[in-house]
Design a protein around this nucleic acid. Structure first.
Length: 423
RNA sequence: GUGGGUGUAGCCCAACGGUUAGGAGGCGCAUGACUGUGGAUCAUGACAGUGUGGGUUCAAAUCCCAUCACCCACCCCA
């Protein structure tokens, strides 16, 4: 137990972690271009926030939350998703009073007590954005476009976009009635789970994987078929903007997202070849949520992308990860050389070089071997002879060529190279 | 929550009831051939007692049970 990580969690080592850094860097970059700024909220919140924000009847709230009492007896929950907390922060700080809309992004761990499998962990990571205060269809399209731009940026060009509209409370009310009516007539053919869902959340029957249920659902009324004029208009506009940007998508009338708060636009990004958990990201509009959480009646929309799943999708194509290498390995031979080299190494590092050295007093051969293992670009040799003459050997480890130079020449050489890099 | 599979050196993988409580490989690691010059080659060496706990047996990585973890699927979702 002592040396075993909790179920469903992961340790991340190099070089794997370089891939994560790269993905997060690119995500930040795309966010910058679209004008989204980072928000950091706590990793835990009061349990009620998620109960309210995510929805009492969702699987997340019903069985997947990491909830505990703190020492003062408050019920605390590790965040299972990002949106509720962002909105809580937005409302708490009264940011809704600022000229809008507000555009935030976040990166971080989420927690759900679920049974782990391919692409599903108890602690997983999401890259998300939220834009609060606009109901413009252009915003919906832009948010979707932004996610696709990110995927494109990291080299995922074959992500499928699935699109749907789940309507507003008004069209949902009439949909709900029609659904219940429709399924009630065919209740016998539904699976047990769906029988239970019938009155509580008939919408979810639509994307039940059970064969019999799917067959019945084929002809059931869908959110799409029951949209009110306003929602229908909104959806048409969203599609118009996506078409204008030449975004390809598949309309999926059965796409119902798991969180209760979605209204109108709902979407998902899918890569089938990564296992059963093929949805690598998703999002949608949540026009009632800000008010639900105690803020003004403002609309919002956002998405969350699964970082682990994105990486799975990426690895389908290539396993290779870019590994950074040291600029220089300094071989130190003997105590005198170490005393001379220690400050020199620091000086080189100030030039923004990655400089490695040997800490154990190994033989030159062993030090060069270490340098080679790290794939260092060059090795600098400092030994008795060099200290005497003041000329050090700089060996290019790729070509095997080596030159002798003084300390000043060495510093100048690297200062110049760095200068070129920055230009 | 339900179901299936897996668990042997740092990593990958053999052995699937028995000759010395055991072993051949590959990668990696260390040392040397090359007494201050890496990557190739060769030699030598180190590192596990088979996830954990029980049981069956004269004898168990090998069979049985339990437990833990991982993988995969259902459910659901990122």
């Amino acid at each position: 137990m002592l040396t075993q990580k909790p179920k469903g969690t992961n340790d991340l080592f190099p070089p794997e972690v370089f891939l994560w850094e790269e993905i997060e860097r690119k995500f930040r970059e795309v966010c910058r271009r679209f004008g989204y700024q980072e928000i950091r909220t706590p990793i835990f919140e009061h349990t009620e926030l998620f109960e309210r924000g995510v929805g009492e009847t969702t699987d997340i709230v019903e069985k997947e939350m990491y909830t505990f009492l703190d020492k003062a007896g408050r019920s605390i929950t590790l965040r299972p998703e990002g949106t509720a907390a962002v909105i809580r922060a937005y409302v708490e700080a009264k940011k809704y009073a600022d000229p809008g809309p507000a555009k935030y992004f976040y990166i971080g761990p989420m927690f759900r007590y679920d049974k782990p499998q391919a692409g599903r962990l108890r602690q997983f990571h999401q890259l998300g954005v939220e834009i609060l205060g606009s109901d413009e269809p252009m915003v919906d399209a832009e948010v979707i476009l932004m996610a696709l731009e990110f995927y494109r940026e990291i080299g995922l060009n074959d992500v499928e976009l699935r699109l749907n509209s789940v309507g507003c409370p008004e069209c949902r009310k009439s949909l709900r009635e029609k659904l219940i009516e429709y399924f009630e007539e065919r209740k016998d053919e539904l699976c047990d789970l769906c029988k239970a869902r019938l009155n509580r959340n008939p919408l979810r029957i639509l994307d039940c994987k059970n064969e019999s249920c799917q067959k019945i659902a084929q002809n059931a009324p869908t959110p799409l078929s029951e949209l009110c004029p306003d929602c229908r208009e909104h959806f048409t506009e969203v599609r118009k903007y996506l078409d204008l940007a030449q975004v390809k998508y598949v309309i999926d009338p059965f796409l119902v997202r798991g969180l209760d708060y979605y209204t109108k636009t709902a979407f998902e990004f899918v890569v089938p070849e990564i296992g059963a958990q093929s949805s690598i990201g998703g999002g949608g509009r949540y026009n009632g949520l800000i008010r639900e959480i105690g803020g003004p009646d403002q609309p919002g929309i956002g998405f969350a992308l699964g970082e682990e799943r994105t990486i799975l999708a990426l690895k389908r194509k290539s396993e290779e990860i870019f590994v950074p290498v040291p600029d220089l390995f300094v071989c130190l031979l003997g105590e005198e050389a170490r005393e001379y080299g220690f400050p020199l190494i620091n000086e080189l590092r100030r030039l923004n070089l990655w400089v490695e050295t040997d800490y154990q007093g190994k033989s030159l051969k062993a030090q060069l071997k270490a340098a080679n293992r790290l794939k260092a670009k060059a090795a600098l040799i400092i030994g008795e002879e060099e200290l005497k003459s003041g000329r050090f050997i700089l060996r290019d480890l790729e070509t095997g060529e080596q030159v002798e130079l003084s300390r000043d020449e060495l510093i100048k050489k690297y200062a110049k190279e760095r200068g070129k890099d920055n230009a």
